[in-house]
Design a binder for these strands. Structure first.
Length: 426
RNA sequence: GGAGAGGUGACCGAGUGGCUUAAGGUGCACGCCUGGAAAGCGUGUGUACGAGAGUACCGUGAGUUCGAAUCUCACCCUCUCCGCCA
């Protein structure tokens, strides 16, 4: 959420930046109209409340006085009875307008950073670096779903029986590899990169979903629990960022860095027919997430570090990848800048997203009231929040399958995973 | 699910209708003291909206009242005991 006053005073800038994302700006014209209404009504109600408060104090004094003073209070009380009634009616109108304004402000995306390339969709993302050498094969490399079937390590049909399309049942090698990858990533981030490991709830309430920006605009992307104010998390970003909702942190504690393993649940509404084969796009997948709380001064440096922490996982697994900066049209609603890491998939002969690292500035912090107190100052400020995948475990798994495949269809184990894997057991 | 206790500022904690403008403490900031620090002493310290005057905020929402942290109702959460349960 952007600051109300900021939008008011920089309406043209907000419009221009919203347009850069390829979004409609009629919402911002409506903002100006409703905002003016609200301020006018607010002035009116507050005037009446001031009158009531002043009179209440007078009544209090009179009531403590002589009999004649007490009598004098009566007409004043009568007058206030009417004033109170007016206040009640105007407050109702104000609630209505405020709700309207809230809906508008919650639907305005974050401002994209000035170094974000302008573009319409993912085809205009800018490659900033590549790493590693694409493996060469003496045979035609297979897709991971071909390998999965041959080796009998992922069973999509049974998963469809259990749950439906876009679910997978990992078996033997694949399920053990998933678990090994998770442990490897968590150990790396906690032992080498200084993150604190947390294991959060996988169901969160609407207040949490609102703070990080999934609600109210993107409800159709979420799975909701019937008759409960609970949603399945689409990413650990939601519970982990909300750890400090409604809190004031000490500057000396920043940056705060968490890493969390969770399953992620996404409805994938609007992506019918896309990536229907294999493990790429599932309703449920595992992910190790990185989340940071920083001061405003350091958030962009911390974004670079976060990206580096995620890249390290791929480097240690020796998986080739590239990093792209998302263009304005492909940028998420709450983010000001995002790097995607895309891993090389030889079976499909393309790069696919395996991590997304974003700086949200104070956009989420304002929604969630996450502040910190600067050293030596009495006024608190909003923190900046960042997060990134470190990494999406399911996609790492399929990347290993495709990159480490051998001619006979078996899959070699990356060196760094050996301590995490006991291959003699199925 | 049943019974009970509770939810107040960054934190702890007092407060049962109007001098509450939320006591007191901790923490934090500034000053005094000190060679420097600690301790001690003094002063100051919430958030949001608003140009400002001001208004709102004591778990959430409704209600009673001229006036609610305080009274009423509903709900949420935490703790203790009982029941059930991995």
């Amino acid at each position: 959420m952007l600051e109300l006053r900021f939008i008011r005073e920089n309406i043209d800038l907000v419009k221009e930046k919203t347009a850069r994302r390829g979004m409609e700006t009629t919402l911002l014209d409506e903002f100006s109209r409703v905002d003016k209404q609200r301020l006018a009504l607010l002035a009116k109600v507050e005037g009446l409340k001031n009158k009531r408060n002043t009179a209440s104090a007078e009544i209090a004094v009179l009531k403590r006085g002589s009999q004649s003073d007490r009598d004098k209070a009566e007409p004043l009380i009568g007058e206030m009875r009417e004033t109170s009634q007016q206040i009640k009616e105007l407050d109702l109108q104000l609630d209505d307008i405020q709700e309207k304004l809230q809906r508008i402000v919650m639907a305005i995306p974050n401002l994209c950073n000035d170094d974000v390339p302008v573009g319409q969709d993912e085809s205009e993302n800018i490659e900033v670096k590549t790493w590693g050498e694409k493996p060469s094969f003496s045979f035609k490399p297979k897709t991971h779903w071909e390998l999965a079937e041959e080796q009998d390590i992922v069973d999509f049909e049974t998963a469809a029986k259990l749950s439906g399309a876009r679910f997978a049942l990992l078996k033997g090698f694949a399920s053990k590899l998933d678990r090994a990858l998770t442990n490897f990533m968590l150990d790396l981030h906690t032992e080498k990169h200084g993150y604190t490991e947390v294991l959060p709830p996988f169901l969160v309430n609407s207040a949490s979903m609102t703070a990080t920006g999934q609600l109210p605009k993107f409800e159709e992307d979420l799975f909701r629990i019937k008759d409960w104010d609970l949603y399945l998390i689409p990413t650990a970003e939601v519970p982990v960022t909300n750890i400090h909702r409604d809190e004031t942190l000490n500057e000396s504690d920043l940056p705060i860095k968490y890493t969390a393993f969770t399953p992620c649940f996404r409805s994938e509404a609007g992506s019918h027919g896309r990536d229907t084969r294999g493990l790429i796009r599932q309703h449920q997948f595992n992910k190790v997430e990185l989340v940071k709380f920083t001061t405003p001064e350091t958030s962009f440096d911390e974004l670079e570090n976060l990206l580096q922490d995620a890249e390290t996982v791929l480097q240690m697994l020796n998986l080739p990848y590239r990093v792209v900066t998302l263009c304005s049209g492909d940028l998420g609603f709450s983010a000001t800048k995002t790097y995607d890491i895309e891993v090389w998939l030889p079976g499909q002969n393309c790069y696919r997203e395996i991590s997304s690292c974003s700086n949200f500035l104070d956009f989420q912090a304002r929604r969630g009231r996450i502040r910190y107190r600067p050293q030596g100052q009495k006024k608190s400020r909003l923190v900046h929040t960042l997060n990134g995948s470190g990494l999406a475990v399911g996609r790492t798994l399929l990347a290993i399958m495709e990159n480490y495949q051998q001619e006979d269809g078996t899959i070699r184990l990356p060196e760094v995973l050996k301590p995490y894997f006991k291959p003699r057991f199925h």
